[in-house]
């Protein structure tokens, strides 16, 4: 079976043989593979390569796979480079009910006990990818001449790099997930800054103002202020 969309799968597994043969089989099934043998390298690949799904062994040499799952789920997905919605499947040598519950509580989407049947694992991977197909992709985003690459955190305007602060980048990335939609100030303060209650909007307004200026070097207007409501991103090429 070949998978058309060439989904990228990250395998975080410290056992050399299991990692190698698992990667062999997944590659033969048409997936793009990223591999790591420890939690540190695993999180690093999640931050820089944005896999579509991760298979994580629970017992890793530098920490538990459960902690890795929690770290991914705790990421805000904006200022942090990790996408917290990445489907995560735990592989474990421990198969008690308590172990499985612990895995799900930390945020795993599925839990497979070793030794497992490869066809069954492949089926579970396909099911997770199918379910996650609706979520916004974390790849390169384009709005007109503006390109946002979450993996490298690089923003370019007509192939010229635009330097943004972490919060400016997070704000832009949020707006770019649904171009033309108006994001309310409350949504943006909660999503980008993590504010639980609506406080002063001065922080948001000043960041939005700086972002607008940085993106309007050629006279373009990408960040639009919708008075009294919030902000939206448009393809605002200068006329």
């Amino acid at each position: 079976m070949q998978y058309d969309d060439n989904a990228t799968i990250l395998v975080v597994e410290d056992d050399d043989a299991t990692r190698t043969f698992l990667a062999d089989n997944l590659t033969a099934d048409g997936f793009e593979l990223l591999v790591a043998d420890c939690a540190k390298d695993g999180i690093c690949l999640m931050e820089t390569k944005y896999p579509d799904l991760a298979l994580i062994d629970v017992g890793l040499p530098d920490g538990s796979g459960l902690d890795l799952v929690r770290r991914v789920r705790d990421a805000d997905g904006l200022a942090s480079r990790v996408d917290p919605r990445t489907p995560l499947l735990l592989l474990s040598g421990r198969d008690s009910e308590l172990d499985r519950i612990r895995g799900f509580e930390r945020g795993a989407d599925d839990y497979v006990c070793k030794p497992f049947s490869y066809p069954e694992l492949r089926g579970r991977v396909a099911a997770l990818l199918r379910r996650s197909g609706q979520r916004p992709r974390t790849g390169r985003l384009r709005v007109g001449d503006l390109t946002i690459d979450p993996a490298s955190r690089e923003v370019t305007m007509r192939e010229t790099r635009v330097d943004l602060s972490a919060k400016e980048f997070a704000l832009l990335r949020t707006l770019a997930t649904e171009p033309t939609r108006v994001f309310t100030k409350e949504e943006l303060l909660r999503g980008v800054w993590g504010f639980r209650s609506m406080g002063t909007t001065r922080t948001l307004d000043s960041h939005a103002c700086r972002l607008r200026k940085k993106l309007s070097v050629h006279g373009d207007q990408f960040v639009m202020n919708v008075w009294g409501v919030g902000y939206r991103l448009v393809d605002g090429v200068a006329g």
Partner: peptide
Amino acid sequence: GPLTAAGL
């Protein structure tokens, strides 16, 4: 571990 690797 070995059983998983052998199966794969």
